[in-house]
């Protein structure tokens, strides 16, 4: 198995809050990992450490064979990252924004134009290319964030709530896209939609209060629900894992 992403023992504390308290996240090529957990569980903080935005208090990160602390440039080059809330420069036009990301990521000339055309096609951005980012609807903005993460065709994708704010059609399309890309890449996506895990993920990792409380396939997750629960079985297990002290310990 090619391990594309290997984060071990990640810890991060903000003052009195222990946001991440020893998280391992190991993802191989071909895996799509659903990163789940209640609000404030530490998903975003973990992703920020994996992408090099935050420095962990403890732990190591290896991306595509490069140690993030020792060789940040190569490690970062191997990651495509959609930050939480898809931040963008409001006054920039979509076309200029994507072009900037492509160039700063080392693409130029015909290759750059080809890649740009491809991501614009993949997430359906053609109609808004000339608009400034502040005038985009929430869903389109998210899609621009996704396009920005894909532009250099990275082996590792870290997507913080990629389908948040998308309409049902777009959700479907983005999930299809992620599943297709997942065959060659290692993908981590955070989400609050449990059906999404069944629909696209090969593995689910659930965190609660900064700790991993479940790591397994969606089928294994579902199997944890008692037999008498017939509807929303995943929700049931999720609640059980993230609200009971006994399970979380």
């Amino acid at each position: 198995m090619d391990t594309f992403l290997e984060a071990r023992g990640l810890k991060k504390r903000f003052g009195a809050i222990e946001a991440v308290a020893g998280v391992d996240l190991v993802v191989a090529r071909g895996e799509v990992v659903g990163f789940l957990g209640p609000n404030g569980a530490g998903k975003t903080t973990t992703m920020r450490m994996v992408t090099g935005f935050l420095e962990p208090d403890a732990g190591t990160v290896r991306v595509h064979g490069h140690d993030l602390a020792a060789d940040p440039l190569h490690a970062k080059a191997a990651i495509g990252y959609l930050p939480e809330g898809a931040p963008v420069w409001p006054d920039m036009r979509v076309r200029d924004f994507l072009r900037f990301v492509a160039e700063i990521r080392g693409l130029c000339g015909a290759e750059r134009d080809e890649r740009l055309e491809e991501v614009v096609h993949l997430v359906h951005l053609k109609p808004v290319l000339g608009q400034t980012l502040e005038t985009l609807s929430k869903g389109f903005r998210r899609r621009v964030g996704l396009a920005q993460a894909l532009v250099h065709d990275p082996p590792v994708l870290i997507l913080d709530e990629p389908t948040d704010g998308l309409d049902p059609n777009q959700k479907f399309e983005v999930r299809e896209l992620i599943r297709r890309m997942g065959e060659e890449k290692a993908i981590v996506l955070s989400t609050h939609i449990l059906e999404e895990v069944e629909a696209v993920c090969t593995r689910a990792v659930i965190v609660n209060r900064g700790r991993v409380v479940f790591d397994g396939t969606p089928a294994e997750l579902e199997a944890k629900a008692p037999a008498d629960v017939t509807r929303n079985r995943l929700d049931h297990v999720f609640r059980q894992l993230t609200t009971s002290e006994v399970e979380a310990a």
Partner: peptide, 14 residues
């Protein structure tokens, strides 16, 4: 304030 610092700091740039 915009959060775009997160984009900048995760680019493969010194």
């Amino acid at each position: 304030r915009l959060g775009t610092i997160e984009l900048l700091m995760t680019l493969p740039v010194r």
